[in-house]
Simulated assay, not measured.
Amino acid sequence: MTSILGPRAVGRRALGAGSLAAAAALALPGRVHAQAAQQLAIATGTTGGVYYPLGGALANYLSRSIPGMSATVEVTGGSVANLQLLGANRVGMVISQVDAAVDAVRGNDRFRGRPVPVRAIAVLYTNRMQVVTVASTGITKMSDLKGKRISTGAPGSATEVMALRLIEAAGLHRDNDFRARERLSPAESTNAIKDGKLDAYFFVSGYPTSAITDLGASPGVQLVLIDHHEYIPSIIEKYGPVYFPEEIPAGAYPGQTQPNKQMSVANIVGVREDMSAQLVGQILDVMWNNRQDWAQVHSAARDFKLEGQKTAAAGVPWHPAAETFWKGKGATLA
Rank of each mutant, 00 (worst) to 15 (best):
A300Y: 01
G30P: 08
G328V: 03
V280S: 02
Y253Q: 07
P53L: 10
A41P: 01
G49Y: 01
S264W: 06
H33I: 07
L306H: 10
V32C: 08
A314P: 13
D293Y: 05
Q296E: 14
G11L: 04
R114S: 13
L20P: 06
N191Q: 15
T140Y: 09
G156I: 12
K261P: 03
L333G: 01
S136A: 15
D227R: 10
V75T: 14
L284F: 03
A100Y: 04
V242K: 11
P53M: 13
L184Q: 06
V73D: 14
V204F: 07
E246H: 04
R174C: 04
G251N: 05
V116M: 08
V94Q: 07
S3Y: 12
S143K: 13
G68I: 10
A59V: 02
H228G: 02
G251P: 01
A88V: 06
A122T: 05
L198D: 02
S136H: 09
Y125T: 12
G216V: 01
F111T: 07
I235R: 06
R8L: 09
E74S: 09
G328L: 03
R31P: 01
G153P: 11
L333T: 11
N260T: 15
A252G: 02
R112T: 15
A120W: 08
L5P: 00
P317Y: 09
V204I: 04
V80K: 08
A295S: 15
Q282K: 15
G328E: 05
K327N: 06
A163V: 12
V123F: 05
H319R: 06
R165H: 12
S63P: 13
S185G: 09
P155I: 10
R181K: 13
I268A: 12
I4C: 08
V242N: 12
G255A: 06
I95T: 03
I232N: 00
A321E: 02
D103T: 05
G328Q: 05
V286G: 14
R272Q: 14
G255V: 00
L198W: 10
Y243M: 11
G45C: 08
D214M: 05
T72F: 13
A187P: 02
N289Q: 15
P245G: 13
R13T: 09
Y61S: 14
P29R: 10
P117E: 01
W288C: 03
V242M: 14
K197W: 10
E307L: 04
A192R: 13
Y125E: 09
G48T: 04
E273R: 05
F178N: 03
G147R: 03
Q130R: 09
Y239W: 15
V242A: 12
L184V: 02
S65N: 13
T2F: 05
G330C: 07
A81M: 14
R165F: 12
A101V: 14
F203A: 13
P29Y: 06
F111K: 12
V161C: 03
S19W: 14
V265D: 15
Q278V: 06
